[in-house]
């Protein structure tokens, strides 16, 4: 019986991770510009692959391997926002535009004001 319960937990985590990863990829295809695509990749993508890694850790039934999978999960959660932040900052600094749907951009206004002052 505990076997079955464990298998169910692992299966739910696997399928959940797969669904999140798939939706993140769908977001990368459907969303209109780099910045919105980054939302999909950095949130749904991280949660998807993290869930799968944790599922692998639980399935092994070994404390050492589970802690390692947990450490990997924490590492992904820590690095994904840093990577997204760096790419977004670089893209904005290089001048890649936001989509036409954008309602406001405080950053561009500030940069233009600074450029005018100079």
């Amino acid at each position: 019986m505990p076997d079955l319960l464990l298998a169910l937990v692992v299966a739910i985590m696997l399928i959940g991770g797969g669904v999140f990863t798939f939706l993140a990829a769908l977001g990368i295809v459907r969303l209109p510009d780099v910045y919105t695509r980054m939302h999909a990749a950095s949130k749904a993508g991280t949660v998807g692959s993290g869930l799968m890694l944790l599922a692998a850790g639980i399935h092994s039934l070994d404390a050492a391997i589970f802690t390692r999978a947990l450490a990997g999960f924490v590492f992904f959660v820590l690095t994904a926002p840093v990577a997204a932040h760096l790419v977004a900052k670089a893209a904005h600094a290089a001048g890649y535009r936001l989509t036409r749907l954008t309602v406001m951009d405080d950053m561009r206004e500030l940069r233009e004001r600074a450029a005018k002052k100079r």
Binding site: G18, V34, A55, Y96
Partner: peptide, 24 residues
């Protein structure tokens, strides 16, 4: 180019998921 970078980052995440499934 940033679009491609974001997509490549996502490919890494997918590969990690693949490896986890293969491990199971």
């Amino acid at each position: 180019l940033p679009d491609r970078i974001v997509a490549l980052d996502m490919l890494t995440a997918i590969a990690i998921g693949f490896i986890a499934v293969v491990a199971i």
